[in-house]
Each structure stands twice: as C-alpha cells, then as structure tokens.
Computed example of a mutant assay.
Amino acid sequence: MNIHLRMAKVFMAAFLRRKSSVNALEAFVVDMRVWPMDLDFNLHKNNGRYLSCMDVGRMDMAFRAGLHRPMFKYKWMPLLGSSTIRYFKSLGPFQKFQLVTRIAGWDEKWLFMEQKFVSRGHVYAVGAVKVLFRGADGNVPTKTLMHYAGIDDESPVLPQWIVDWHTADQALGKHIPKQ
C-alpha cells in the first residue's frame, strides 16, 4: 500500500475515532502489511519503507495523543532531527506486522521515540527518532508539547541505548560543515 494511503487511513481513523483519554506514554500500535510496492529486489520490505512506516506511526500517535489540535491551531510542524534503525529479521511479501510507537522520553528540545516492528510475537526491527515541533515563533518547548498530550510530569529516564545514540548523533552533527 502506498505510504500516502497508509497516512490517509491514519487521518480518517483519527477523525472517526471516539474521543477518549489516552496516556501518551503508552505504546501506540498500528496494524500494517507488507505490500508488493514495499519490496526490494530481495523480495523483502525495503529499508526505506520501514522509515516511511515509522512516519505513519508517529502521526498516528500524535493524533491519538491529541497533538493534532494544537498542530493545526498553531501551525506546528513535526520535524525529524535524526533516526536510527536496527534490522533483525526480514518482513516478507504480504506479511502482517504491528508498528509499536512509544515516547521514550524528552529533553528541553527533543522528543525521543522508540518504534518496533513486530510480527508473530517477534521483533523484526527497532528504530529510534528524535523529533521537535516548530511553529511561527520557533521550536515548541517539549514541556508545552507534553502538556498538550496530557503529561505535566518530568521525562522518564531514557534507555541507555537512546542516550548513547543521541550522544553519537550530536558528535556527528559537530563534524558537518556549516553552510
């Protein structure tokens, strides 16, 4: 299924879903399937399609957590700062899987998320992303963002592997020449 159709499905489900309170720190699950256009020459899910599916999972989470309201009202744009993914197994043609998205934690600038691809009780890939939201006045503080998601607590302690990845990502960013 084309990524635009997957995103349209998320948007339609969000508007048709009954309003309910959710805990934005819980896992959000989207059921998906590997379609022929997701395949590469090895006849398994293309690595780029994993990242596109992760976009869909994050938008689903934003809608379910109620972040779409301030996003539309204040014209906030979610921006991906960095991502990493580790593949364990190949997802094959027509295989059903679940994309499990959860907020791992945040700092004053970044919202860190973990996203897992799970099928038949096995983890096929795990990714992490850092996201911020930007509005007309600049970056939206994560404290403001989390307030709209119904969370006024401090961030959970980030898993060490995400801390290590973020540290390495920041080091990489220092080596990129400023244009």
Rank of each mutant, 00 (worst) to 15 (best):
R102I: 01
A128N: 04
L39E: 13
G105E: 09
V100T: 05
S52A: 06
L25A: 06
R69H: 08
A27L: 04
M12Q: 09
D164K: 13
F28S: 05
L99P: 00
A8L: 12
N46Y: 04
Q115H: 15
Y124D: 10
V131I: 12
Q98I: 10
R58G: 00
I151G: 04
H166P: 07
I151K: 14
E26R: 14
K109M: 00
R102W: 09
P36E: 02
L172D: 02
H122R: 09
D153R: 14
T167R: 14
S83V: 01
E114D: 04
A128W: 15
H4L: 09
V131Y: 01
K116D: 15
F112R: 10
R69K: 12
Q179N: 13
H175Y: 13
H68G: 10
F11R: 09
L43W: 14
K116F: 11
K45L: 14
A128P: 04
R120K: 11
L158T: 01
H166M: 04
K174V: 02
F112M: 12
K19A: 09
L79W: 11
A136L: 03
Q98E: 08
I85F: 09
E26M: 01
H4C: 02
F41M: 05
P93R: 08
R17H: 07
L25K: 15
D60R: 15
V163S: 03
L91G: 09
K19V: 04
